[in-house]
Amino acid sequence: MTDHELSRPDSSMGLEQEQSRLLRKALQRSGVRHGDLWLRYFSIGGTVGEYEVDAYIQSLFSLPAGQRDLLAHAANELIDELPPLPRAPYLQDLA
C-alpha cells in the first residue's frame, strides 16, 4: 500500500470536515437559520432529513458529496438573497 492510497480516505474526510466547518461559518456570518437552509435544500431536491443535515452542519454526521454540494448551493442561494449592506450616500445623492 502506498502512502497515496493510505492518505486518500483521510484527506476526503478532512475535506468533508472542512466543507461542513466553512458552511457552519457561512451560516453564522449570514444569520441564515438551519431550518431555512434545510427547507431550501429540500426545495431543490435534497434527500436528507433535517435532523441529519443539522448534525452535518455541526460536523457530527457524514453526508454523500452530492448532497453536501446541494446543501452548499442552497446556503449560497439564501446568502445571495440577503439584502446588501447599506452604502454611504454621496452629497449628490442627498440633495
Partner: peptide, 20 residues
C-alpha cells in the same frame, strides 16, 4: 441522477442563478 444534479449545480454556479 447524481451526475445530473451535479450538472445543474455547476451551471447554476457558473451563471450565478438559482438551481430552479
Amino acid at each position: 441522477h447524481e451526475a445530473a444534479l451535479q450538472w445543474l449545480i455547476r451551471h447554476a454556479r457558473d451563471e450565478n442563478t438559482a438551481l430552479q
